[in-house]
């Protein structure tokens, strides 16, 4: 079965593709400048000129959501990439060099996991100050442990297999074995985790910016839009409904993709298929 036949995963991929296009061509696709204020037109409901209405400063909500896609995707992909790299490196080293190094790395993982994730991210983001890069760092600090654990487990199981021993007898070194032979064999769970993880990271980033940590105010950030909109929840609900929908659809899309990939890559879930 091809992953394209999985309807939900396909829908997820289409949505993600659309989000990427929105982010790349935001200046062309946005109907208005997301930063230009026109106080005379504040808090207008959805209409022909402003499909998603305007906020308290008269800025176009649709344009701000479109520009917000850029920040959300950069944070989502950036955090996931960095977490994966850190997790894979530490997990591989821990799993391959069973012993003291393994103990040290895995106890560090335990310590990080013992903190409530979002609170630790709040502390780190608060210490580093506002800015997209700092949000990425904060969320990476709390996001890499899962990858390290999964990779370590997979490496522990994989390195006992005979082909690893065979490669050793052919004269290969440790680094070579890890990169060339172990990594491709343990990537499957990581691909699944990372694709669903992007959605989780975007949600967490929205949470941080809702609390005022993240990119500085004029920047169009989905979480911050929710925060400003909540004062007008009764008089202008479009200020919260549309950014909220944007977050929900994005997270759902990544989750669908992750589920689809898992079904695809886990041999037990797959129908037998011969070439």
């Amino acid at each position: 079965m091809c992953i394209l036949e999985n309807k939900l995963a396909f829908a997820g991929m289409v949505i993600i593709a659309m989000l990427v296009i929105l982010a790349l061509f935001a200046p062309l696709l946005a109907p208005h400048d997301p930063y230009v204020q026109s106080l005379g037109q504040s808090l207008i409901g959805p209409c022909r000129d402003y499909p998603f209405g305007t906020d308290e400063f008269g800025r176009c909500v649709l344009s701000r959501i479109i520009y917000g896609t850029r920040i959300s995707l950069v944070i989502g992909l950036g955090v996931t990439t960095m977490s994966t790299i850190i997790g894979v490196v530490l997990g591989m080293v821990a799993g391959f060099h069973n012993g003291r190094l393994d103990e040290i790395i895995m106890r560090v993982v335990d310590v990080f996991l013992a903190f409530p994730g979002l609170i630790l991210a709040l502390v780190v983001a608060g210490l580093l100050g506002p800015g997209t890069l700092n949000v990425v760092i904060a969320l990476t600090v709390v996001g890499w442990m899962g990858y390290a654990r999964v990779i370590r487990g997979a490496v522990l199981a994989e390195k006992e297999k005979e082909y690893i021993g065979a490669v050793q007898t052919f004269g290969a070194g440790d680094c070579y074995i890890m990169l060339r032979h172990l990594l491709p064999n343990v990537m499957t769970p990581i691909v699944v985790m990372a694709s669903a993880g992007v959605g989780y990271v975007i949600l967490a980033a929205a949470g941080l910016s809702f609390l005022g940590l993240g990119a500085e105010p004029p920047a169009p950030v989905w979480g911050a839009m929710l925060n400003y909109g909540k004062a007008y929840l009764q008089s202008a609900p479009h200020l919260t409904i549309f950014p909220g929908l944007a977050i929900m659809i994005t997270v759902l899309a990544f989750n669908f993709l992750g589920d689809g990939l898992r079904d695809q890559l886990d041999p037990r879930m797959k129908n037998l298929h011969f070439r």
Binding site: E162, A166, N185
Partner: peptide, 18 residues
């Protein structure tokens, strides 16, 4: 290993990277 002393492993079906 490999260059001076080679080994033909015991279990051929498990000794190649899948």
């Amino acid at each position: 290993r490999g260059a001076e002393i080679g080994l033909l492993p015991q279990n051929p079906s498990a000794s190649l990277n899948p």
